[in-house]
Design a protein around this nucleic acid. Structure first.
Lengths: 359, 359
DNA sequence: CTGAAAGCGCTTACAG
DNA sequence: CTGAAAGCGCTTACAG
């Protein structure tokens, strides 16, 4: 690959001059010289070496995005947002699926530091773990000290995200909507208790319940993982638990999908016997049967804004925190509360359930 | 951030020695010296500068993956496979959503070259376009000349992929399965005619049909985009076309999802009135109602093998081409052929359709 | 408006 | 087993 030296030679100028026309946007160079350099560059198919430049600036136009799993539609949507914005300014995006594993996260951060990524955005929420947090804080401090931008899109140990979403308000609104439909016994599949975003959403549910003067029944609040399997498990626990409920709110759509599947398998009609709702509005939420009512999060926009925030940081600004609005999307999985609450209202055929034992 | 110079100084050795213990895996260094260097490195939280190293080797441990859209579950799955394998050897993966747009693809390749990515894997299929192909070939030749690895996971202008899947065999098998279920009038939503993978799949369908001695009816072969909207459009065209059919095979699952939605909206029962099948087996294929019969492609494995192939290329090997097997997954969207074929068998209520006009 | 030269942080012959 | 030195491809004061 041709280097700037070769371009300079072909154009009959010094590398300094070549560099100035090729990268310093507004450095004064005579028109004739400029043209000769440009001509030489295209002739040699010159592609600037970002490593050499990065070595000088100790920063390369690359942003790392730490996600739980790029395969999870929540995260691929956020990454796409980052990518759209990044592409516009010539940045490349590195995807890091950490599986919320401290070791993987650590090693990704290290690699990102080693390539001198200009920015890192944490798309997912932090997992409460003091030791890991402390170490992560050290890494991030080092990155920042080196001039890199760090942006969070979800709550974490070190506080609120630079660009986020009002999880609590969104889900509280959904509680309100369910209450308006006549539901008073609302079960909640809460996601992992250690995840900050899950805590925030749970707080929103409790706020919504309190707002409707509905006492919080701890036995209807189930901790789960954050995937479809968690949704199925949650349903099993609720049915086994024996506490009546007419609606199931899920801390995210994946949980709701799992719940819907499990409910269908048990022959329980949605929304006739139970209403189900989620949070996120991933692409597939509109395609389930019945289609899923959910709290829409502006995922792609979150990614876009997150990257834009990083760019501003890099530019020396101290951009202000942003909270993007959520939106209720009521589809077919929610309806008026039935006369008889589950699990008492279960049809005999559906009472079969795993022998896990009741609470 | 501490440099190797500082580590060397703290350890009381030359940078050459420090470099040798820190990176040259098996260079002979006395145990005592080695320990002092390692000690100094951890004490200073030394993170090697991949840019400096990359500048020397003119290659950085980073792989770019060109996808159509990271948000498409097909591609996020492949990317995850690449990532899993890459993480194991300390490589980072850069995601490039090109939207199959020549300009975006071009600019991504340029950026990838500028950061001296060690490898680039093309996850998606090429789009037939002579001018673009020629330019791409130039870029790739330049990358290869510079020692970078280039791997394709799908057919393209320059031929067969280094690691691929037998698209034609997979879909031909699905045709066979439908024939076994009594279908003889099989419609096909073919995807974009310009896409090599779509051509390959179409050839598979035709092969399957010929194998069953079923004449190919061009009016049942519909060109579409490769997304849900294309599936819906395809259904509209088939219904408007008036040619009888009892099954609809789709060139990918996204198309099948769109078809399923449109069919449901039209009140047509699947599989009672029509069978529907796809290709890919994306995660959601199991969750549709009815669940989708499809040709499973080992997407994650494709990504893994693709990256492994690149690594071998980088190691100077000339690894052989691989074709991964596909697998038929029959779920609930396919069944025995009905007595009356669509669209003649349509219930009156479902004949309403867009005023697009018939073929 | 232009150029000579130093230096970013590494690795690697070359010499000892 | 260890070190001095050159050089990868850029950018940027500094001088003119």
């Amino acid at each position: 690959m041709a280097s700037i030296t070769e371009v300079a030679r072909l154009a009959g100028v010094s590398t300094a001059t070549a560099s100035r026309v090729l990268s310093a946007a507004d450095y004064p160079v005579s028109v004739a010289t400029r043209e000769r350099v440009l001509e030489a560059a295209t002739q040699l198919d010159y592609v600037p070496n970002a490593l050499a430049r990065g070595l000088l600036k100790s920063r390369v136009p690359v942003v790392g995005v730490i996600v739980h799993d790029i395969t999870d539609p929540y995260f691929s949507e956020v990454v796409r947002g980052v990518e759209d914005e990044a592409a516009a300014v010539g940045y490349l995006v590195i995807t890091c699926s950490s599986e919320r594993d401290a070791d993987r996260e650590r090693s990704y951060i290290r690699l990102l530091r080693s390539v001198r990524a200009a920015a890192v955005v944490f798309a997912g929420s932090g997992l409460a773990d003091a030791a890991h947090d402390a170490e992560m804080e050290r890494h991030l401090a080092a990155m920042r000290a080196d001039g890199a931008a760090v942006v969070h899109l979800s709550p974490h140990a070190r506080g609120e995200p630079e660009v986020g979403v009002d999880n609590a308000a969104g889900i509280a609104a959904m509680v309100g909507e369910l209450v308006a439909l006549g539901h008073r016994r609302i079960a909640y599949l809460a996601g992992p208790g250690g995840l900050y975003v899950a805590r925030e959403r749970r707080a929103g549910v409790e706020r919504g319940l309190r707002g409707a003067r509905i006492p919080i029944d701890a036995r209807l609040m189930i901790e789960t993982t954050f995937d479809r399997a968690g949704g199925a498990d949650g349903i099993d626990q609720l049915l086994a638990g024996g506490r009546p409920f007419t609606a199931i709110l899920c801390a995210n759509d994946l949980l709701a999908l799992g719940a819907l599947e499990r409910l269908a398998a048990a022959g329980i009609a949605v929304p006739e016997q139970v209403s189900v709702a989620g949070v996120d509005d991933i692409a597939f939420a509109a395609l389930t049967a019945p289609s899923l009512s959910t709290v829409r999060l502006p995922l792609r926009e979150l990614g876009r804004r997150g990257f834009a925030h990083a760019v501003r940081q890099l530019g020396g600004e101290r951009p202000r925190r942003q909270v993007l609005p959520t939106e209720l999307v009521m589809r077919d999985s929610t309806g008026r509360a039935p006369a008889r609450a589950l699990p008492a209202g279960l049809r005999p055929a559906a009472t079969r359930r795993p022998a896990k034992g009741a609470a």
